[in-house]
Amino acid sequence: MKRLLIIICIVSILSSCKDDRGLVVGKIKKASKLATTEFTIDKIVYGVKRKRLLWVVKLNEAKFLAHSKAIVKAGVDLEKLKKEDVDIQGKSISLKLPPVEVINFSYPSEFFARDTLISTDAFLNKISLEDQEQFFQDAEIDIRNSLKHMNIVEATQKKTRLMLENLLRTLGYQEIYIDFHEGELIPEILEEEVGV
C-alpha cells in the first residue's frame, strides 16, 4: 500500500512539472511583443562623382552629402520557445531563449535631408537622382551590415531578461537562469547581391 502511495505521489509530481512547463511556455509566448527594443541610427550619406577626360585626366568632382536615419526593431521571437527549452526544478527555472533578430528594418526617405552647404555640382558634372539613390542604397547596406557590431543584441537580451525575470518571479520562481541560442541578427547583404 505504501509503495502504491509513493508511486502515485511521484506520478503526480512529474505530471505537475510538465503542466508547469506548459503554463510557463504559454505565459512567456503571450509576453512576446514586450521582448523588443527599437533603435534609431543616424547615418551620414556621402558620395563623390568624378569627371575624367579620356578616363585618365581628372577634371572635377561633384559632391553629395545628406543626413539620414534608419529605424531598427530587434527582439526575441518567444513564439519559437519550445517545451524542451524550459527546465523546471522546484522553485528554480532555466530558459534557453531563441536568438535576438531584427524584426523590422526601415530606412524611410522622409528622414533624408541633403546638406546644401557641402553638396555641390561641378562644371558638366552633376549629381543625378540616380546617383543619389545609389548613395542612399550603399548607406542602407552599410547600416544593415554594421548592425552586428552595435550593441543591439546585448541591449535586447538585457531587456528580455529583465522582463522575463519579473514575469517568472510573479509565477513563484526564486532562481531564474536565462540564456539565448546563437543566431544571425540580420542576413548580411554581399556586394555581388546588389550588382556592385
Rank of each mutant, 00 (worst) to 15 (best):
V48M: 05
D138N: 04
I141M: 02
T120D: 11
K58D: 08
M163W: 00
A122P: 15
E193H: 08
L5T: 12
I176V: 08
E110R: 06
K30P: 04
A74D: 01
S109W: 02
P187E: 08
A62Q: 07
L185R: 00
L54P: 09
M150Y: 10
K27Y: 13
F111W: 11
L97S: 09
K27P: 11
S68W: 04
F123D: 15
I127N: 06
H181K: 10
T156Q: 00
E165G: 02
W55K: 14
G90L: 07
G195V: 04
R161S: 02
A155W: 00
I10C: 15
D87W: 06
A74Q: 00
S94Q: 09
H149L: 03
Y173M: 07
W55V: 15
D179A: 07
D20F: 13
I41E: 09
L97T: 12
T40H: 10
K2C: 10
I103Q: 00
L78T: 10
S68Y: 02
V72W: 08
L129S: 10
L117P: 01
E38G: 09
M1T: 03
S68H: 05
L23R: 12
M163G: 01
G75F: 01
Y107E: 06
L34M: 03
F123R: 15
W55E: 15
P187I: 06
S94T: 12
K80P: 08
Q137P: 01
K126R: 15
L54S: 13
P98C: 06
K63I: 12
K29Y: 07
L124Y: 12
L78I: 06
L190G: 14
I10T: 15
Y177F: 10
L162C: 00
V57L: 10
W55T: 15
E79A: 12
I7F: 13
V100W: 00
V25M: 09
A31Y: 05
